[in-house]
C-alpha cells in the first residue's frame, strides 16, 4: 500500500505573473532514475512531483519539447528535509517534507522557445493537501 505525498508546482508567466498553460510538451524525470513522472504533458499549468524519503537534494530533469521532436532540458533542484509522518494506524506511514531551497538551470531560448526563468517557494511544507509549494516562472521567446 503506497502513501505518497507530492509537491505541487504551478507554472506562471515571468512577465505577467499570471498562470500559464504551456503549448509545448513537458516531460519530467528524476535525475539518475529510469522513470518518467510526467510524460509529454501539454496545456497544463501545474503538476505534482514526489520527493525523496531522505533529506537532501532532489534533482528533476524538465524536458521541454516541440511537435517536431526537438527538446531542451532544464534542471530543477529541490533541497528538502524529509519528516516521517503517521496519520493513523489505518493508513501506511509516509514522509512529509519541508522545502529549504530551490535552484534551477535555464536553456537558451534558441533551442526550445520556453525555459525556466525563476522559481520561488510559496509553501515550504509539503503535506497531504494538494497545494502549490513552488511557483515556476517560465520565460518564452516572445519576451
Amino acid at each position: 500500500m503506497d502513501n505518497i505525498v507530492m509537491m505541487g508546482a504551478g507554472l506562471y508567466d515571468s512577465e505577467t505573473k499570471q498562470k500559464q498553460k504551456i503549448s509545448e510538451y513537458l516531460s519530467i524525470a528524476p535525475e539518475g532514475k529510469d522513470t518518467i513522472l510526467l510524460n509529454f504533458a501539454q496545456h497544463i499549468d501545474a503538476f505534482y512531483l514526489p520527493l525523496k524519503h531522505e533529506s537532501g537534494d532532489n534533482n528533476f530533469l524538465l524536458y521541454f519539447s516541440d511537435a517536431y521532436g526537438n527538446y531542451s532540458v532544464d534542471t530543477l533542484k529541490i533541497h528538502q528535509t524529509a519528516i516521517p509522518h503517521l496519520e493513523s494506524l489505518d493508513c501506511p506511514s509516509t514522509f512529509f517534507h519541508k522545502i529549504n531551497s530551490v535552484a534551477w538551470t535555464s536553456h537558451p531560448l534558441s533551442e526550445i522557445p520556453l525555459t525556466i526563468d525563476s522559481v520561488v517557494i510559496s509553501q515550504p511544507s509539503v503535506e497531504y493537501e494538494d497545494q502549490e509549494n513552488i511557483k515556476i516562472y517560465l520565460r518564452s521567446v516572445s519576451h
Partner: peptide, 12 residues
C-alpha cells in the same frame, strides 16, 4: 517505507 520513485527503504 519504500520509496517507489527513488527506490530507497526508510525504517519507521
Amino acid at each position: 517505507i519504500i520509496d517507489p520513485v527513488w527506490g530507497t527503504e526508510s525504517p519507521f
